[in-house]
């Protein structure tokens, strides 16, 4: 088990390196010269060259990658071209905000999805099943920026129950876990939770339905176990596949929905990416994509390890 753990972690390292390379290259391949974003359009050629040297953009690509990588592993993602602030600091606060939003949305989506999916599977073919499946299909199909706007119109503008934008009364800097702050989280979190809820509903429904048809469930009934006892077996059998989907969904949520964060002016990674793209702010773009990708890799690793702990058949050391 320990050996497996170490091996899986070692596997993750080349993946992370490859992700870093792709991040670096993507920005190089993108059309347009980042220098143009820094210097005024009418700057003399010497100034342009000077700036190019300052940022190390005159060196060959492999060298640039090496320098960038060695800084990255020390936690230095460079300075934002647009604001001059260190990327790492901005990124940390953005990730904190997105993490909060993602976890809230995942919490709502996963719990609701698991409940709806289980109900649908147990009462398959009944109107409850059809309702849950319809709900799931709607959740996956409705564009969430549109849903966000509808929610703002309904709950902020018409009913005036919840704030429409921002991450707290005092801006994003002073978050606290009280209702004054949490109410800012409600609308974006619910909006974001709809897609994972739909996907988890469908996954759980499929997995549980298949499990309930397995012979071993008949054995469990034959042993005299009641619903609760059987449910325990079904949950442990269903967990690996459901967790895999949940891990992926949490990864997508961590990417921060550019659209939802923009609709609600939520200062997370999506918001940060959005402004970095518009301002051609290369270091911010690279740093954000890299950290999110690494996060995705780490999340998949975590899911793999949990799956292994739950399902003895995967354990091959």
């Amino acid at each position: 088990m320990l050996l497996y753990l170490i091996r899986r972690i070692l596997y993750a390292i080349p993946i992370a390196l490859a992700v870093g390379l792709v991040c670096f290259m993507l920005v190089q391949i993108a059309p347009g010269d980042p220098i143009n974003a820094i210097v005024p359009a009418d700057a003399p050629q010497e100034v342009v060259e000077q700036v190019r040297r300052d940022y190390g953009l005159d060196k060959p690509l492999p060298v640039q990658f090496g320098i960038w990588l060695s800084r990255v592993v020390q936690g230095d993602l460079g300075r934002s071209l647009a604001t001059g602030r260190p990327v790492t600091a901005d990124l940390v606060s953005a990730i904190g905000n997105t993490l909060m939003l993602a976890l809230a949305a995942a919490g709502i989506g996963f719990v609701m999805g698991s409940i709806l999916g289980t109900i649908a599977a147990v009462f398959r073919g009944s109107w409850l099943d059809k309702l849950a499946v319809g709900f799931a299909a709607a959740g996956v199909s409705i564009p969430h920026y549109w849903l966000g706007m509808v929610m703002v119109v309904l709950f902020s503008v018409t009913l005036n129950w919840l704030p429409a934008m921002g991450a707290g009364p005092g801006g994003s800097g002073s978050w606290a876990w009280d209702w004054e702050h949490i109410k800012y989280l409600v609308l974006p979190a619910v909006t974001l939770s709809v897609i994972p809820m739909g996907i988890i509903t469908r996954t759980v429904r499929g997995v549980v339905m298949e499990l309930l048809n397995q012979d071993f469930v008949t054995t469990l009934r034959g042993k005299g176990l009641r619903r609760g006892g059987i449910a325990l077996h079904v949950v442990k059998n269903a967990a690996p596949s459901v967790l895999a989907v949940m891990g992926l969904q949490l990864g997508y949520l961590m990417g921060g929905s550019i659209l939802v964060e923009t609709v609600f002016s939520w200062p997370g990674t999506g918001f940060l990416l959005n402004s970095a793209i518009f301002q051609r702010d290369l270091p911010v773009l690279q740093g954000t994509i890299l950290v999110l990708a690494i996060f995705f890799v780490a999340l998949n690793l975590a899911v793999d390890l949990i799956q292994t702990a739950l399902d003895p058949r995967i354990r091959r050391a």
């Binding site: 397995q214 054995t219 059998n237 739950l310």
Partner: peptide, 15 residues
């Protein structure tokens, strides 16, 4: 109580 034809599928694989 009952025993079944295919013991592979009649036992819970993860317990």
């Amino acid at each position: 109580s009952m025993i079944f034809q295919e013991p592979m599928t009649a036992l819970d694989p993860v317990f």
